[in-house]
């Protein structure tokens, strides 16, 4: 039996893409994941994650990654209630990943507060029959979802570090990170509009832009 796991990385970030990754395994090979020490990506160091990234890709039947740009995210978020729309988008993208992997069973980490609604939204976007198990914290409960979370996280980190190289220290990209705030603030004060790797629909980005709308005057 072919089993898939799907997870995302970078959902809450104000900078960089949202990455959705899926991995496909033969059921009998699933135990290898545990032997490798695959766990939720948040519980692993970045170097360990990178190591596992290659090992997972080696033993998986298939893996697939979809990267959503800040622009695509802004488009849906601006179209309606933020989380609602983003959840729908995420479900559609996860459906695409599952479609590529063609599993018989797919485990997904539920992005919606209602795990079953999330499952419906995925299912209605897949043209073939597949059993979907949508649960909160699936990335901790199921090694196959942990594996997907590692792929997603490593891809997302790659994207962020490419931005770092180009634009300097922008922190993790998350609004709770002071470095990220400082980076956004500096940028908006200098250039007045955000670059395309920033999610302009994010509250933090909007607030900093608003603040920049008052201008420091000079004495002379």
């Amino acid at each position: 039996m072919r089993i898939a796991g799907v997870d995302e990385a970078g959902r809450g970030s104000a900078i960089g893409p949202l990455v959705i990754a899926g991995v496909l395994f033969k059921k009998e090979n699933l135990s290898i994941l545990q032997t490798l020490g695959v766990r939720d990506s948040k519980l692993l160091s970045s170097s360990r994650r990178e190591q596992l990234f290659y090992e997972i890709k080696n033993i998986a039947l298939k893996s697939h990654v979809i990267i959503l740009s800040p622009l695509e995210i802004d488009k849906v978020v601006n179209a309606g209630r933020k989380l609602h729309k983003l959840n729908r988008l995420e479900a559609q993208i996860m459906a695409k990943v599952i479609e590529v992997l063609r599993p018989e069973v797919a485990y997904v980490d539920a992005a919606d507060v209602l795990a079953d609604r999330f499952k419906e939204h995925i299912a209605e976007n897949i043209p073939f029959k597949v059993k979907i198990i949508s649960e909160h914290k699936a990335d901790i409960k199921y090694p196959i979802v942990s594996a997907a979370s590692i792929i997603a996280k490593v891809e997302r980190d790659k994207a962020v570090s490419e931005l770092q190289e180009k634009y300097g220290n922008l922190g993790s990209g998350y609004p709770a990170d002071q470095k990220t705030i400082d980076f956004l603030k500096k940028w908006i004060n200098r250039y007045e509009t955000y670059p395309d790797f920033v999610r302009k629909s994010w509250k933090t980005a909007k607030r900093l832009k608003n603040e920049a709308d008052t201008k420091q005057t000079k004495l002379t």
Binding site: D213, T214, K215, Q216, T217, K218, L219
Partner: peptide, 8 residues
């Protein structure tokens, strides 16, 4: 003395 911030 400090110059103000004004609305753009």
């Amino acid at each position: 003395y400090l110059a103000p911030r004004i609305d753009v």
